[in-house]
Write a protein that binds this DNA or RNA. Structure first.
Lengths: 239, 239
DNA sequence: TCATTATATGAATGACGTTCATTATTGTCA
DNA sequence: TGACAATAATGAACGTCATTCATATAATGA
């Protein structure tokens, strides 16, 4: 995925440098000439760590090591591990494409948004349960996303309340589907004796849609089409 | 929720006893006359603990205490904490009601199943990411559920492959929605300055649907109706 | 009877998140 | 210029957690 952290081109002089690494060889204590840590650096390395090595590998020790810094130094910038995850959440949400809402009818834009949303989270599924439950208030990237999406629905004639419900519903489907992409390919491998109809249906599914990621995609496509067809039926197609 | 663990009426002599508690006052070491622990007892107390005190409170220490047993004793029965959670998963899935598939048209039965599914998991949201990703093979309760649901869809004329996709899609929506029920009521509390349209929409939502759990329910209802309308449009209504 | 097996125990281990006293550098104000 | 607060790093604790291990004892069965 390789998320571009918000403000990538602002203060950070490190730019494309290999990684935060003090110029002097092995300075030890006290305030360094130029700060090693920042929300931006922490967030960038956090996303890289989770994407490459998975969530279990994401410990503050690993994060600190990657940043060439002591664990306790992290606490000068982040109040907790939870906060670091919040930053990561916001950075991910900032990458979700809301552009289509400016040009396409609401239903097509919503579909496009849902796909972008699922893609963004498929790499970081362990964050989903954390995310799905966290306040949006102090996450500017997430907030901007909701504003755009809900505004487009209201513009198209939805009431505010139903617009939020529709967004939450689509979001729920997206989160669930992103989790599904993390499931092992053999999740439904099952003996014919134990569940004959189900086993046959799973075999048929593989014949039609392939294996692994392809099956998760097929289920997502079917569900998204159905969900949007239902929403359209309720409010008339857009534009 | 109060899940009835599978096999509640089998070997366990404890029956309705307050809790596993050795008859003799404070026996200390060695094999007891009658075993305190069993998969059934561990699973029952696990579900009670998670339901009542939340997932964060579910530690092996807490589990052992509730069972009046040492932590290490648990390892004579379960290989790991993960395994204990797997048992819990299967017990929960066994409580999901698939009865309607025997009598109702597929779409109504699917809706009823989805509601039962969401209710079952709303109390144990932290299990969702564990669950959504775990193989179904050695979980007899889960397997039986899939067999019933898929068989009903195939009976109604769905191809096996699409039936599985539809089930996965509904399941994804259910998991996502169950996560949503765990969100704090103030998750969307936001200042009007930062996101005016969104803030107004959230206010409208509260006016129409109430606060807290009621809003999550409204979003779930809207999404489920839409999803099923879309699936119906694709395959004709049931019966 | 006596070895084996099942089931419990407490103590030790190592990983983790978090706190704290300490140290060194920077920027600001008299 | 010199004092001083603020900033940003450090290593050493701490408490909690899951897991392992050596040990003890009751039940089972040959």
């Amino acid at each position: 995925m390789d998320v571009d952290v918000a403000g990538a081109s602002t203060a950070t002089a490190t730019a494309t440098a290999d990684d935060a690494r003090p110029a002097g060889t092995g300075r030890r204590r006290g305030r360094p000439s130029t700060p090693v840590l920042s929300q931006e650096a922490i967030t960038r390395v956090t996303l890289r760590l989770i994407t490459r090595r998975g969530y279990e590998a994401f410990t503050l020790a690993a994060l600190a090591k990657e940043l060439h810094v002591s664990v306790s130094a992290l606490y000068n910038h982040a109040a907790s591990k939870q906060q670091v995850l919040l930053w990561a959440q916001d950075a991910i949400n900032a990458t979700i494409d809301t552009g289509p809402f400016a040009t396409l009818p609401w239903d097509e834009a919503l579909a496009s948004w849902a796909r972008s949303y699922r893609d963004a989270y498929a790499d970081v599924t362990p964050l989903i349960p954390v995310m799905a439950v966290l306040p949006v208030s102090d996450a500017p990237g997430s907030l901007a996303m909701y504003e755009t999406v809900v505004a487009a629905l209201v513009e198209a004639g939805w009431s505010g309340g139903e617009a939020v419900n529709a967004v939450v519903a689509v979001e729920s489907f997206v989160f669930g589907s992103a989790l599904d992409t993390a499931a092992p390919a053999e999740i439904f491998d099952v003996s014919e004796d134990a569940a004959p109809v189900f086993a046959a249906a799973v075999a048929d599914r593989h014949r039609r849609y392939g294996r692994g990621a392809a099956t998760a995609d097929a289920a997502f496509d079917l569900g998204l089409d159905a969900l949007l067809a239902g929403l359209r039926a309720r409010h008339g197609s857009g534009a």
